[in-house]
Every structure is written in structure tokens, then in C-alpha cells.
Amino acid sequence: MSRLPLDDLTAAVARIRGLLLSQEKADRAVSLLAQAIKETMPGAPGTGASLLDPAGGLISSGSTDAVVRQADAAQYELREGPCLMAWAAEEVVIVHDVHTDGRWPRWASAVAGLPVRSVASAPLLAGKDSIGALKIYSALPGQYDEDRGRTLALFAGAAATLVAHVQGSEAPLRMSEQLKATLASRDTINRACGVLMERHGITHDQALQQLIQDARAAGASLVQVSGKLVERV
């Protein structure tokens, strides 16, 4: 197990607390944490956070590189991707290789031309609320594992507390239940497709068509059929 960068985390949090005393904007606070993560974690060309703006729209905050904003923009437009799933499911999401992961095919296709191969994303949990997600994009595959995910979660915990304190009630920070349900359903379907793809050596589209046929035959929804398949596995 690698050593957790607690000294870097402590230093970053201390710097941000100074900003809070002067009521600086949340994106400034997040940018300091994002830079600390980039300097600490391996293979990270880009780090940042996903939040909601005052109008309820998805935005990237504190991005260290343009690739973060580009990869995030594709997630926001398509309503799928690892960072949105980490936010909705309130758990760390690790992608070892975007090119082969298979859970978010449209997003993977959209970022195929970007230096994005590995991804780690952790939810920003403030109390009982999930108010966003912290993420790392690496140009190299296989850069992040569960250990690195726990490290990112430490940063995310600090970031969530600080961002919530800065923003207070100025912005509707909680992702809508409808969007969370949509993302969770899509992830379940994609996982079920992955099971069928591995089991039968078929494409994602073929797996999806089989799930649709099974759902019709069973008189159930696509999500219900997918969920039962994933649970059995």
C-alpha cells in the first residue's frame, strides 16, 4: 500500500481555511486542492471538481488543465461518465482504461482524442448531501487503484466541507434525484451489457438489444432485467 499524502492534504486544507476567513469563492478553494492533488497523485495531467452553478447547471470548478474541462463537458452533455456516477452513487469510481472500460461508451468515444486513459473520481460528501465530485484524469492507463481512490476520497472529504461552507445556501448543490436515478439506471444497464459482452463475445449494441428482448419477454423494464443480471454475477 502506498503512503497517503497526509502532509500535502493538511497543507492544502490549511491554505484553504485562510481563504474561507475572507470568504473567497469556492472555485478558488477547490483550485488549491486540485493543484495539491495533481502534485501528489501519479500520472495526473488534470484535476478538478464538478459542481452545480446557481442556476442548477453542471460546471467544472478549480480545473488545473483544459483537458479536465473538455472531458467534463462531454460528461455534462451526454449525462454519463465516471465523475457523474461517483456523484450520483456517492462512491469512488475507478477507470483503469477508458478505451476498454465499456460502462460509458458514448463518453469514451467523445474523449477518444483527449489524453484521458485512467480516471479516479470521488464524491464530495457534506453531511448527508453529495454536492459534487472530485476527479483525476491521466493520459496513461492503469494509474489508479482502490488505494489511490481512498487517497482521493480524503481530499474529497476536505473539499466538500470547505465548498459547502463557502457556498452556503447560494447554490443548489444537490444533484436532482431525477438525474441521480438516470445515471444510476444507465450504469446498471451498462454493467449488464458488459456481463453479456464478456460472456458471449458480442458488441455493446448486441448486448443492449438482447437485454431489451429479455425485458420485453419478461414484461419488465430494462433496468429491472439489467439489475437482476448484475446481482446474479
Rank of each mutant, 00 (worst) to 15 (best):
A55C: 03
K228T: 14
K135D: 11
P45S: 09
S226A: 15
A158G: 08
V92T: 14
G149W: 05
T100Y: 11
Q209W: 03
S169A: 14
L124T: 05
T188A: 15
Q213N: 10
V30G: 02
T47N: 11
S221T: 15
G142I: 09
P123T: 04
L183M: 09
R199Q: 15
D72I: 00
V95N: 02
V67W: 06
A55E: 13
P54C: 06
R117W: 00
L33F: 15
L125Q: 11
L208H: 13
A139Y: 04
R232W: 03
R103A: 12
L222T: 00
E80M: 06
D101T: 02
K25D: 14
Q143I: 12
A89L: 13
M197P: 02
A160H: 06
A153I: 00
G48F: 04
A164M: 05
W87E: 08
A108N: 05
A171I: 07
S22T: 14
R79N: 10
A159H: 07
R186K: 15
A14P: 00
L19W: 12
E170P: 01
A192I: 13
L32P: 01
I59G: 01
S138L: 02
L152G: 05
E198Y: 02
A74C: 08
A89K: 06
A171C: 07
A26E: 07
D8Y: 00
A218N: 12
Q70M: 06
I59H: 00
D27S: 14
A71R: 03
G219N: 07
M175R: 03
A110N: 05
T151P: 00
S130D: 05
V233R: 13
S221K: 05
Y76K: 07
G157H: 04
L179A: 05
G142H: 15
R79F: 04
L21V: 14
A184I: 14
R28G: 07
E170A: 14
I131N: 06
E146Q: 12
D7L: 05
L58G: 05
L134C: 12
R3D: 10
R17P: 00
E146H: 08
A153M: 01
N190F: 03
D65K: 07
L196K: 11
G81R: 02
H204E: 14
T100Q: 13
P45C: 08
R199P: 01
L4K: 01
R3G: 04
L78N: 10
S138T: 06
A26V: 12
R69G: 11
L124S: 04
G219T: 11
D8G: 08
S138P: 09
D147G: 08
G227H: 08
R186N: 15
S109Y: 06
R148G: 15
A126W: 03
L140K: 14
G62W: 04
L222D: 03
A215L: 10
A122S: 12
E39P: 01
T40H: 00
H204S: 12
L58V: 03
A153G: 00
M41W: 09
A108M: 07
A158C: 03
R79T: 06
L211V: 09
P115C: 02
G18F: 01
Q210I: 11
P123S: 00
I59N: 02
Q209K: 11
